[in-house]
Design a protein around this nucleic acid. Structure first.
Lengths: 140, 140
DNA sequence: TTAAGTGCAAAATCTTTGCAAATGT
DNA sequence: ACATTTGCAAAGATTTTGCACTTAA
């Protein structure tokens, strides 16, 4: 995933620093949306909290990752699926599943947000669909 | 709304203190989900921040209100529609609309979350559907 | 009277900002 | 060389906790 990370950084015009490469590689490996605190713990040996904040904002601005708020109000980050996102324009219209047992958030990329008949007085920019429940592993 | 507030407090076994009555009346008057900071400003003359936190948690635990996280990760609170919620069991399966212009969050009580075919390996407890866009007033 | 609710002060978190030093292009 | 990125320290903001005082039941 390191190569893909490097490639994404390059095509976004970001510098390929070791920390950013590792951070992005890590996110690319996961199918889950990782919380800021988790990333912080994970990388605290090689980096500092503030650097992670800034890296994540940079990634998000460039449309490399998207941020979702989990039910606790904790920010979580996941790599955008290919070609869906661009600078400041995220069409991450897939569904997120949050497990109340293990507290993990999974992107259900396969599932699509169903058609909604929204009153025409509203103009819609983005739809977030979040399911809470218990995941396969915890149900086991 | 004061009467309804008092009634809800009574039937939840909460004390009918002036602050809680006013706080709950205020939420009952609004069709919108109000943020903690807003409530804080609104009531800062008669109450203190911590009291509001605690009142809101109490209301939420009793199923009087529900909490939703807006796109900024700010907690917002709205009264549950009649009979939908109970202690620790919120079935607020309606849709929330967040306006990116005025930053208000509205409960679209009329709209229902559509049927979703969720892989059976997941057990679903709650579905959150959040739409971001521009509301009628701001579109005007 | 006594359990629940309040206020104030203080801790614990989480997020942002400024600036000098380090790093990639 | 120059623009980004990093780290550290410090400011801001938000949420939680402890405890003595007050209030509703």
């Amino acid at each position: 995933m390191r190569e893909i990370a490097i490639q994404k950084l390059t095509s976004s015009g970001l510098k390929k620093t070791e920390i950013r490469i590792q951070l992005l590689s890590f996110l690319l490996d996961k199918k889950n949306a990782i919380s800021q605190p988790e990333l912080e713990k994970m990388f605290k040996s090689i980096s500092d909290r503030v650097t992670i904040y800034r890296a994540l904002s940079a990634f998000e601005e460039k449309g490399i990752i998207h941020k979702i708020m989990d039910p606790h109000g904790t920010a979580r980050y996941a790599v955008c699926s290919e070609g869906n996102c661009s600078d400041h324009q995220h069409s991450d219209e897939h569904i997120h599943f949050h497990c109340t047992s293990c507290d993990e958030t999974t992107c259900l990329e396969e599932m699509v947000v169903p058609e909604l008949k929204i009153p025409s007085k509203y103009s819609v920019q983005k739809i977030n669909l979040n399911i809470e429940g218990v995941c396969e592993r915890c149900n086991g």
